[in-house]
Every structure is written in C-alpha cells, then in structure tokens.
C-alpha cells in the first residue's frame, strides 16, 4: 500500500509518495527531502533536537507520523534565513554563544522561534528557561541560549518584525 501526501515545507509544496506508513515527519524531512538541518537525537521525544514548526507550532517531528500530517505547513531551520541574511534568532545564537558542538542548535533555534511566536514568556528569563525546557543541550550552553532568546525577542519586537517568525 502506498500513500501520497503533500506538505508545504518552507513555503514550497512537496508531494511525497510513502510506501510505508511508519515514516516519521523527521525521517521524511531528512531522508526524502534532504533537509538534514533537523537533527535526530533521541528519536523518542525527549531531547528536542528534531523540533520543527508545524502549522506555526513547535513540535517534536520524531513523534509525528508523516502520513497524519498530510496538508500541513512545515517550517525547518533551512527556512529561516533570507539568502545570506540570518533570522534574528540565528544571529542572536551566534552573538551570545548559544551553542558549542551545535548538534542541538537547529532544534533550539526552531523552539525559540516557536516560543517567541507563542508570546507567553515575555522578558522573564525564568519563563524563557521553562519555555525552552524541551530542548536539551549536552554542552550546557543554556546561559547563552537564554540570553540569545531574550535578545532576539527584543530585537524582533523592536523591529516590528513579529511576522519574521
């Protein structure tokens, strides 16, 4: 049995034929669409490395079956920068040393973009830390990550660029 699904990934419509219903959204992005920026860490919903935005919301793509997301709008790390111009969250992670090895970084950044979009944390560092608790960093760059998220959020609000998320 094969299934054809259509996803809009980083604003491009992609139709994929699946010959197996077990494919996760994470594996579809990496193996079928060559979008390997989204990382496979634990593959069990515990580390957050696979975080992407689905219909504007951050989720763990490792626990999402691709077949059940037919028609969804997906945004991945590859869809953030505009050419050579980094997204404000990407720029802030560099400015604040929000990573060391970098493996968790795409998930951290997508989670941060989602968090800023959700607008629940505000400028409270404790709420930002709690709001980023679904993303583990084994290098423990957490202090830089928190500063990066707060800084990016402020810049995006200041620039009136909420829609950039």
């Amino acid at each position: 049995m094969s299934f054809s699904i259509t996803l809009t990934v980083n604003e491009v419509a992609r139709t994929v034929t699946l010959d197996d219903p077990r494919v996760t959204l994470l594996d579809l992005l990496r193996e079928r669409l060559d979008l390997t920026g989204t990382k496979k860490g634990c593959d069990r919903g515990q580390c957050g490395a696979c975080t992407v935005l689905v219909d504007g919301r951050r989720i763990n793509s490792c626990l999402a079956l691709a077949i059940s997301h037919d028609g969804a709008q997906i945004r991945t790390i590859e869809g953030l920068a505009k050419g050579d111009e980094l997204h404000p969250v990407q720029a802030a992670f560099i400015a604040h040393d929000g990573f060391q090895c970098g493996f968790c970084t795409p998930g951290q950044i997508m989670s941060a973009v989602g968090l800023i979009e959700e607008a629940q944390a505000g400028a409270d560092p404790e709420r930002v830390r709690e709001g980023m608790s679904g993303n583990l960093c084994r290098c423990a760059a957490y202090a830089g990550i928190t500063r990066a998220v707060l800084d990016a959020q402020e810049r995006m609000a200041g620039a009136g660029r909420k829609d950039a998320a």
């Binding site: 919903g45 957050g48 919301r57 951050r58 989670s111 980023m132």
Partner: peptide, 9 residues
C-alpha cells in the same frame, strides 16, 4: 507536564 513541544501536539 511534558515540554512545550509535546504540549503543542
């Protein structure tokens, strides 16, 4: 409960 990503789904 859980994480923001899990609560979103």
């Amino acid at each position: 409960g859980a994480s923001p990503q899990l609560r979103n789904a």
